[in-house]
Amino acid sequence: MSEQADQRAQPTDEERVEMLETMLRIREFESRMRDNFADAEIPGFLHLYIGQEAMATGVCQVLEDRDYLTSTHRGHGHCIARGLDTTKMAAEIYGKETGYCNGKGGSMHIADVEAGMLGANGIVAGGVPIATGAALSSKMRGTDQVAVAFFGDGALSEGAFHESFNQAAIWDLPLIGIVENNQYGEMSGIDEQHPPSTHDDLTIYGEPYGAHREQVDGMDVEAVYDAAARAVERARHGEGPSLVECVGYRFEGHHEGDSEFYRDDGEYEHWKSKDPVETYPERLIDEGVLTADEWAAMQADVETEIDEAIEFARESPMPDPQQAYEGLYADGGDSR
């Protein structure tokens, strides 16, 4: 079992409303990307974060701007929760010159290094060692920055995860691993990927490394916030790495176009009843933190924002083909 939380970290009402807006922004952005991908507006392939909004949102809410994060192939939610600009994200996904990577990266490689966002990643677990290195660097430079690595349940099977956590533990690095357990790695369930001894609690993988461990409801943004707050606090104070498992679900396929043959009957409905973008606004309205009118206004605003982001992406120019040869080396010596 995970360690028991000693003290609950409670977001302020202002933060709660902010988190709702972040989750809504992710949902709206992703839904529009899904539709526009289906309309063949978007090249390449697309892995969406729909259903998992509470995970990135709760974690990023407790981070400071100076902190670092690494992400995955399913990275749009992490970027938005980090505060990246949906306009430049959309442009990147559309392959436009105005995107975060000038069209070189696309959906799977959005990065904003100045904002501490060290990249989505097409290689499963590829970001974990990079976050470990950011944590090492902040320690060596004597700052109190922490590094968060987001990764899926499937990534726990890669050596890169284990090697990183071992190293972070030996060196007491401010590394926080967020396992986003959405029940599947691609089309294979947890039972095909991990031994039974781990199924109830994937944070057990952090045990031999002495990581602080917590398992939370990944559909409950405040539960995520709470666990993340403790992990970040520990990391900032030199108490070493943590591993937090967010248990949840993705409502879309592994990638767009996935036939989703592997879902069990009733499974989707079960998780859908916990949909954070449906349940959280109800809760905030019930508790008087937000009025129904404010919620409606928030929805309208976010919709407009995403409309504008997509319009910008559509209208932006494709990169000049010659840019293919630029940006490879620091000394400007580009390809042969």
Binding site: P43, C101, G103, P319, P321
Partner: peptide, 16 residues
């Protein structure tokens, strides 16, 4: 292929 990693954008990839 020219000695660069494969870029994402169709306009860039078509170039190489």
């Amino acid at each position: 292929i020219p000695d660069v990693p494969t870029p994402f954008s169709p306009s860039l990839e078509n170039e190489i």
